[in-house]
């Protein structure tokens, strides 16, 4: 009888956690953080030999395919040389224009490199675990890139590990812009390898091959990071082929936005013992007279 009661209690507990999880209740966040902190070092340790074997198998495959690989590299070099020339010309032109306008651009972002140590490994979620967390300056919502393209954002944070939801996950929603054409849209993941574009500002002007970039609407993603290209238009559904190669994902780059301290002219700056600078705003001066009846 007691055993049955405990089983029913466990079932009710599972239902309660499911409801909290389905509604993304923040009360589960501490549990997620603890699980990340405990599991990340174990996963890193257990996964090391498996990653080594995988790398060796990849190297062996490349070695067997050396001639074709070499040919492809030569073609890439020829193509990149043309791009290099164009980039140098544009860089010079850009510098000239900046000098004319006397513009000084301060770098807005810092980058951290982290290793992928785990993944959801399943059909229900598309997420990865990386070995950088709060101690390394990662914040919730930090954008994650595979080197060239945005591939996801941080959703859960531990001291030395973080969970990243990929752009292909069903819970992923990214404000995007299509170029050329400056078409605003929302990139929505659906657990397949081809996320969809919805809420297009100019649906009639979408074409295959257009570049999909992040827009900073909503303030989560910095503007202009490449996400993918328009791959197909099937029954008014716009499918996107992500640029990031998720199968080869071993290291990722985290884009840390610099938080600049804007100093209020009326504020008093306080430098604390740990070096942190904080500003305390002065109380507004009381209106002298005028209100008296």
């Amino acid at each position: 009888m007691v055993g049955r009661g405990v089983s029913v209690a466990a079932l009710l507990g599972a239902v309660a956690i499911y409801i909290l999880g389905a509604t993304s209740d923040p009360r589960l966040q501490p549990l997620r953080e603890i699980a990340l902190d405990i599991s990340a070092p174990v996963t890193e340790f257990v996964g090391a030999p498996m990653r080594f074997v995988r790398r060796m198998a990849g190297d062996a495959g490349e070695f067997l395919d050396l001639a074709a690989y070499n040919k492809k590299l030569r073609e890439d070099i020829a193509s990149l040389s043309q791009w290099r020339e164009a980039a140098l010309r544009l860089e010079a032109e850009n510098a000239q224009l900046r000098a004319l306008n006397k513009v000084t651009l301060a770098p807005r972002f810092d980058y951290i490199t982290a290793q992928v140590i785990g993944n959801s490994g399943g059909a229900f979620t598309q997420s990865i675990t990386i070995n950088a967390g709060r101690s390394q300056g990662v914040r919730p919502g930090t954008v994650v890139m595979d080197g060239t393209a945005a591939i996801g954002r941080v959703v859960a944070l531990g001291e030395n590990a973080a969970r990243v939801v990929l752009v292909t996950d069903a819970s992923s929603r990214i404000p995007a812009v299509l170029q050329p054409g400056d078409i605003r849209a929302l990139l929505i993941g659906d657990n397949t390898g081809r996320p969809k574009l919805q809420f297009l500002s100019k649906p009639g002007r979408v074409a295959k091959g257009q570049r999909v970039l992040t827009s900073n609407h909503g303030g989560i993603f910095p503007k202009g990071l490449p996400l993918g290209t328009v791959d197909a238009l099937v029954d008014n559904v716009v499918q996107v082929a992500p640029i990031g190669d998720f199968r080869q994902l071993e290291f990722v780059r985290l884009v840390i936005e610099r938080v600049d301290l804007t100093i209020d002219s009326d504020a008093v700056l306080i430098v604390r013992a740990d070096g942190e600078v904080e500003q305390e705003k002065a109380e507004p001066a009381e209106d002298e007279g005028g209100d008296e009846e």
């Binding site: 599991s39 996964g47 140590i117 059909a123 990865i128 990929l166 390898g193």
Partner: peptide, 19 residues
Amino acid sequence: FAIVLTHVALGVGADSTPW
């Protein structure tokens, strides 16, 4: 160990075979 083994990264994303 079974949970950790399921979590080990061997190919990521929807294009990879589920583990």
